[in-house]
């Protein structure tokens, strides 16, 4: 009998110990995870009512710089294209939306491209709106498709939805999945 009583004690203490260990591990792991403030970053609402055609505004989503832009309607892109697997990749994702967000981080080495709405004579593209990465000269279309330079992939496109005058970045809408070329 003595032994079985001790066994009982052993199980009870062991069980309480296991519960205590789990109880301790839970908040410790939780405290290392993203905070509520960081979680807020995963959904960014941007008011686009003040945006004018050819405007680019910069905001931030999940730590990425994000370009919120408005193209005039109709808009005809007359620049060059690059014939590869990713030809018109972002343009297809974004469809015919003229207000959208793309991630402003060059897929080459992570610099933030400059918006040149009147083109850049220095790169022989006058009168063609482009993004020009100042680090190594990559060029992107207004939708973020890479057309020249060392950049291997188009710019990232966050999931987004347009709700009235609010562009909800991070909410699946007309772009459902995050096109993430930075992994």
């Amino acid at each position: 009998m003595e032994a079985s009583r001790r066994d009982f004690m052993q199980y009870v203490v062991g069980a309480f110990g296991a519960v205590a260990a789990v109880g301790a591990a839970y908040p410790i792991l939780k405290s290392l995870g993203p905070s509520a403030a960081a979680a807020l970053q995963s959904k960014v609402d941007y008011d686009v009512s003040q945006l004018k055609p050819m405007d680019v505004r910069v905001t931030s989503w999940k730590g990425f710089p994000v370009f919120v832009m408005m193209l005039p309607t109709p808009f005809n892109w007359n620049g060059p294209e690059r014939n590869n697997k990713y030809k018109n990749h972002n343009r297809d994702i974004l469809g015919n939306h003229n207000v959208y967000a793309i991630i402003g981080k060059c897929t080459h080495l992570g610099c933030i491209p400059l918006w040149k709405p009147d083109g850049d004579p220095g790169v022989h593209l006058p009168n063609t709106p482009i993004f020009h990465c100042p680090c190594h000269g990559s060029l992107y279309t207004p939708w973020g498709d890479n057309i020249s330079g060392p950049a291997p992939l188009p710019l990232g496109v966050p999931p987004q939805a347009l709700n009235g005058n609010t562009l909800e970045i991070g909410t699946p809408g007309f772009v459902k999945k995050f096109w993430n070329p930075y992994v």
Binding site: P27, I28, K30, S31, G33, S35, A36
Partner: peptide
């Protein structure tokens, strides 16, 4: 306030 469970620790 900011760190999850920071108040607990």
């Amino acid at each position: 306030r900011v760190i999850p469970y920071g108040w607990l620790f």
